[in-house]
């Protein structure tokens, strides 16, 4: 795959994750507003998330989108302001994005399987 093609793929991933985040962040904020009405407690969180595959899916997609979107954005900033360009940097940013996403997914799994 040519370097330019890989760059286009990163661009597309960032746009698509932006679309997902627009929905996911809205759901997230509405959930926060509703959840705190009855007082925020660990029991309530677990009641909602434990064993609930729909919430697990939602947070897994949310974390993946956030991790990739953020890392690709940082890649662009680093390229323009620090001159960090090239395949090595791209792979490193992709790794950072996936790692960040993994932390989020692990947390979601922890609540699901708790």
């Amino acid at each position: 795959m040519s370097a330019a093609r890989g760059q286009v793929h990163l661009w597309i991933v960032q746009r698509v994750t932006a679309m997902l985040l627009a929905v996911a962040v809205t759901v997230h904020l509405v959930t926060i507003l509703l959840a705190v009405r009855g007082g925020l407690s660990a029991a309530e969180l677990l009641g909602r998330l434990q064993g609930n595959a729909a919430w697990l899916c939602f947070y897994a997609v949310f974390a993946l989108a956030a991790g990739l979107h953020g890392a690709i954005g940082l890649r662009n900033i680093a390229g323009e302001s620090l001159g960090w360009r090239g395949r090595g940097f791209d792979l490193a940013w992709l790794g950072i994005g996936l790692l960040t996403a993994l932390f989020g997914i692990r947390a979601a799994w922890g609540l699901y399987a708790a």
Binding site: A4, R5, Q7, V8, N76, G79, R85
Partner: peptide, 12 residues
């Protein structure tokens, strides 16, 4: 279209 794709092209 290939010439204008990527970081040196429209995507920047």
């Amino acid at each position: 279209m290939e010439a204008v794709a990527g970081d040196a092209g429209c995507h920047s």
